[in-house]
Design a protein around this nucleic acid. Sequence first.
DNA 1: GCTTGCGCTTGACGCGGCGTCAACCTGTAG
DNA 2: CTACAGGTTGACGCCGCGTCAAGCGCAAGC
Lengths: 252, 252
Amino acid sequence: MTHTQWTIQEVAQATGISSRTLRHYDQTGLLEPTDTIAGGMRTYDQRALLRLQRILLLRDTGMRLTTIADVLDGSTDDAEALREHRTHLVRERTRVDDQLAAVDATIKAIEKGDTIMPNQMFDGFDHTKYDAEVRERWGGEAADRSDSWWSDLGTDGQHDFRKQLDELNAQWDAVITEGVDPASDRAQEVAKRHVGWMTASWQGQQLEADMLKGISQMYVDDERFAANYNRVSPEGPAFVRDALHVYADRNI
Amino acid sequence: MTHTQWTIQEVAQATGISSRTLRHYDQTGLLEPTDTIAGGMRTYDQRALLRLQRILLLRDTGMRLTTIADVLDGSTDDAEALREHRTHLVRERTRVDDQLAAVDATIKAIEKGDTIMPNQMFDGFDHTKYDAEVRERWGGEAADRSDSWWSDLGTDGQHDFRKQLDELNAQWDAVITEGVDPASDRAQEVAKRHVGWMTASWQGQQLEADMLKGISQMYVDDERFAANYNRVSPEGPAFVRDALHVYADRNI
DNA sequence: GCTTGCGCTTGACGCGGCGTCAACCTGTAG
DNA sequence: CTACAGGTTGACGCCGCGTCAAGCGCAAGC
């Protein structure tokens, strides 16, 4: 039985959204029903459903409804809007990551016996400064139990180690943004630093070419590891892998 | 010049928040000023500042203000509330990750020439089903350029590969939740599957003990890679590393 | 004494995407 | 005729403030 018109409930059930949502979309002009019959009852036809489907596709990305309207009505460039939204999502991701780090640090402190309580009375009294301080004192990272190498580094050393990682990530982001070739000098320079960092992290163990290739492959395969490098572009992880592959072939 | 009372502006500047925020906290009862002088002007003393500091510490984790109030007034267990909040954050993180994947897939589709447009007219017409379908067709992942191995897998193979990774992650989560020892049989079984997966991903390359140890160390060192395993507990990455170390010593 | 200006005060609306009443209409089955 | 199912149009609520608007007390300069 194929209709050409559907009631609000039929549409709602089929798409898995609520009828309230459809009414809301009507009110805001995002999706108007094809026409209204009887006592003001909304009906939707195929064209409306198609638009709805596109709306939901974009909504799944977390894009704002007004932005979606702009995109679908053609008043904004699609790809442009999506890329802008993408950077927004990346920001949100780092925010959540930071909050997770903060919450872990706080839990750790509480379990150490302290209540939630700053170590010192307000001194210099600058919140942001205080915050960084606390996070440094508490580590801001998971426990490192059986890890003598790590603890041997000392607080300063650990701090350095993390700073290097951050710098590395920033440099990858930079070359990815520039759009150069993975085999270019710029990229290979970063690859070299990356390998240097890995070697340090591995306590000087010999890094062989195959090994490096295998690991860099994981940068692409493992979704969450890929998150490390897809900040500026979804091509990021593949770029890093390619650059490291080239480096391995040439230098190891 | 050390005061014992501060005006709202002094507090605001010192902590970096706005005076509006302080008034809001007063209204909701989260932080009441020590007393009010003159024409109703709020003043804060040391005790109030201490409470404020704790508020901001928790607020930095993204915890809701009412929950913060409960914690500080002692009507909830601190650690309990934090852990609950933690799982909330983890959920949020996967949500953002999913949205990023969706946005990347959409961008890719657009650049392939299509406008934002479902491949088929509404057929079975179930939104969620449609969604999964689209994501599968478009890959839902970054481009894999020079990667013959990956493309040789075919769509089905790639799907399998990802499913295995997901299962692996779920199993790690499970054993971490259970709180067993990294050297226990349960954990070692997962470690074995993990190594199997890695070997597959590395195209059958021989995996040596040192290599495995080095990589698992990275699970802890690299913050974002650690994100893979800290979903159920901040101790997660260290647990995985320990389990893999044990496995390497025993079996390789 | 009057004005100006600063710093504070108390409301109140706005945001985003709906969920969730409430009060009402309308067509159909019993 | 009644009950019920399924629709309708408001309107408030959520959360953490930003952002006006209108007003008050106090000090300095005229």
